[in-house]
């Protein structure tokens, strides 16, 4: 709990956030500079630079599709860039302390990556152990997540009994266990029904920065306030969703491509620093 009994949504020291200047400056939560990477003969990222302000909700789409997913995996430390640098929540990937990267950055990929014989409680407990929370703190966080993600009676059942939908919900809950400042979502919760998916992906926390990669941008309507389009490895456009609305374009791959083609300014979006 922060001063005045306010629940903190960030592990960044509260004194920093209390500063007027920091709130006005809206510091970048995600910074990548000059990222380049080829896969086979395809140049998926070509000197890509991107900054997302604290609290931003960014939808990343790309042509070819693999570029956006690769960007997220590089940000999460799962793939390597040939060149360039990355900082998330003010941290470089080299900070592998439990109180650093492990708690402040979350990632959910298309694969749940968890053992199907485990129950949601066991997965969350493991995530808590790896983040080095004590038993009491783990129990508190697991109870809160069980309620938010409505595990109900499935909390202690093996995940395999309920299929991919539960596995993906558990993966998201495990990523949220540490209340991360930056959450990276690579085409998440596809096995979950659309309404429930939208409700689960409405990630709470005004200071939390969320990047979503999705091959179906329309399905992320209402969840994001910025869009970025990567074309041939470079950043073609980074704009607030309102820029689409202003031009009568829809939140779709075609709409975002049209926004990029319209010559909307490259670099940081005009009104997309924070949520």
């Amino acid at each position: 709990m922060g001063p005045g009994g306010v629940t903190l949504n960030s592990s960044t020291p509260d004194a920093l956030w209390a500063s007027e200047s920091v709130r006005l400056l809206k510091p970048a939560a995600v910074v990548c500079e000059e990222l380049s990477r080829r896969v086979g003969r395809q140049r998926l990222l070509d000197r890509l630079s991107l900054r997302v302000g604290v609290g931003g909700r960014l939808l990343v789409v790309s042509q070819p599709e693999a570029s956006a997913s690769l960007l997220l995996r590089i940000l999460a430390g799962l793939a390597h860039a040939r060149r360039g640098s990355v900082r998330l929540a003010g941290l470089s990937r080299a900070d592998d302390s439990p109180a650093g990267w492990a708690r402040r950055v979350g990632y959910v990929g298309p694969q749940a990556g968890i053992y199907p014989w485990m129950s949601p409680r066991e997965v969350l407990d493991l995530a808590g152990r790896l983040a080095e929370y004590d038993a009491r703190e783990r129990a508190r966080r697991i109870d809160a997540l069980a309620e938010r993600y409505r595990f109900g009676t499935h909390l202690d059942e093996p995940i395999r009994r309920r299929g991919d939908a539960l596995a993906q919900r558990v993966a998201l809950a495990a990523a949220m266990l540490t209340d991360p400042e930056v959450l990276l979502l690579d085409d998440p919760l596809r096995a979950v029904e659309a309404d429930e998916r939208t409700s689960l992906l409405a990630i709470p926390g005004p200071r939390r920065t969320v990047l979503i990669v999705s091959p179906f941008p329309a399905s992320e309507a209402g969840l994001v306030n910025q869009v970025a389009f990567i074309r041939d490895g470079g950043l073609a456009v980074h704009a607030p969703v309102s820029a689409l609305d202003a031009r009568g374009l829809t939140l779709s791959q075609r709409g975002i491509e049209a926004l990029a083609a319209s010559g909307y300014g490259r670099g940081a979006p005009r009104a997309a620093g924070a949520a």
Partner: peptide
């Protein structure tokens, strides 16, 4: 199947 990735994103 992503188990190593699941650990790696937790700074393991």
């Amino acid at each position: 199947r992503g188990a190593v990735a699941w650990m790696a994103v937790r700074a393991v």
